[in-house]
Design a protein around this nucleic acid. Structure first.
Lengths: 214, 214
DNA sequence: CCGAAGTTGCACACTGTTGTGCAACTTGTT
DNA sequence: AACAAGTTGCACAACAGTGTGCAACTTCGG
């Protein structure tokens, strides 16, 4: 049964336009999380009406964005690890940066709203847990701050990362600069001095800021 | 001419209710910057219709909140200074914390929207400038990070402060705890290690975290 | 080139919100 | 008690956004 090759398989338009819509949504929602469907469709070079040919509702579109982004981040997170908790935190910083737009879009538009549980609940929770664990281990090893609970420190690191992402919207940064900023900000929140953070960065520059390393 | 004592001076209701509305707006808008006028009025124990007896429009209400908050912060900022840039940054952190709700409400609801210039333009710009100056001086003195431009560092500090404010919404903190968190986060972004930051905090605990010092 | 998939442009109903008008009521002040 | 200020509850218009229906058009693919 060659059911896969139906009379009309899939039109190339559809795929391209759908991708364009998701791209446009990422870009538009990053600046205005409450942007209208119309604005998104226009940014994709389509009509509002056409958008509804791809997604049944605004919520479905955003949901797609969110779960897709979460999947990418989760996959990347699972792929790269390090035994040294400090390096591991830096590593998380890098992979977060590499999915800036996905993350940004999802946090801003989903933080409040019915989709929140969908996102923060499943796909990102393990990442947060990993961060908390890293912080606790680093503190136990004397490599991180001990003056605040690990939970709080983890959230400060996450906040620092978001601030770095915001900064990237303001002043355009290269991929390397962005990665550096996110990592330095995170390690600063962890309690390292800027020289210590810089040392970590240089010591693992190949994995933390250079491209190509799969 | 005793024009001040007109036949009907001012009714005590009016003043109290107006204050209640502003308070309610602060509280409600902190959680949902897009909260409706109805929600605000209800939180104040009044009707939507009554609110319009105090403020001509939603924008006027928010504007009042914003300018009032900005004035308070600006006044507090002008009142407390320190020659040591590091201590000065910590000082800014403290005063920001003490006006959490005002700041929070204004940033969230005004960051995007027509009032943005009103706020970020005038009253808060000097605070940002002061921060940038502090960062530059601290870096020149070898007391702060030199790996990032002062502008960027200043924004990272501001971001760290906001993250700390967010954390306070999640887990209730006492006034002192909140002040400590904001200051530690800011100094971390500045490039200090957590022990250095803690040392600064302890050395100036009287002005940075204790109450009562006018 | 022909047919179907996809898009456009319009119209429409529905919802939530803002802001106003007005009569009836309650509350503060003298 | 009496008057006015303030509030309520309702009705209303205006606006922006979402989601749908449908006919005409354009584009893709065999």
């Amino acid at each position: 049964m060659t059911a896969s090759t139906s009379p009309r398989p899939v039109r190339s338009d559809r795929v391209r336009n759908r991708a364009a819509l998701l791209d446009a949504a990422r870009g538009v929602l990053r600046r205005d999380p409450d942007a209208s469907v119309d604005a998104i469709a226009a940014a994709a070079g389509l009509t509002r009406r056409a958008l509804y040919g791809h997604f049944p509702s605004r919520e479905a579109l955003v949901g797609e964005l969110v779960t897709e982004g979460a999947r990418r981040v989760a996959a990347a997170a699972a792929a790269s690890r390090d035994d040294d908790p400090v390096v591991d935190i830096a590593l998380v910083g890098r992979l977060v940066w590499d999915d800036v737009e996905a993350i940004r879009a999802m946090t801003l538009s989903v933080v409040r709203g019915p989709l929140r549980e969908t996102l923060m609940g499943d796909p990102l929770a393990p990442l947060h847990a990993r961060l908390v664990d890293d912080v606790a281990r680093a503190a136990a090893a004397g490599a991180a701050r001990e003056d605040l609970p690990a939970e709080t420190v983890a959230r400060m690191i996450e906040g620092a990362a978001f601030t770095a992402l915001d900064e990237s919207v303001r002043t355009p940064l290269t991929r390397e600069e962005g990665r550096r900023l996110v990592i330095l900000a995170g390690l600063g929140a962890l309690g390292l001095s800027w020289r210590q953070a810089g040392a970590v960065l240089e010591a693992h520059a190949d994995r933390l800021v250079r491209d190509g390393a799969r």
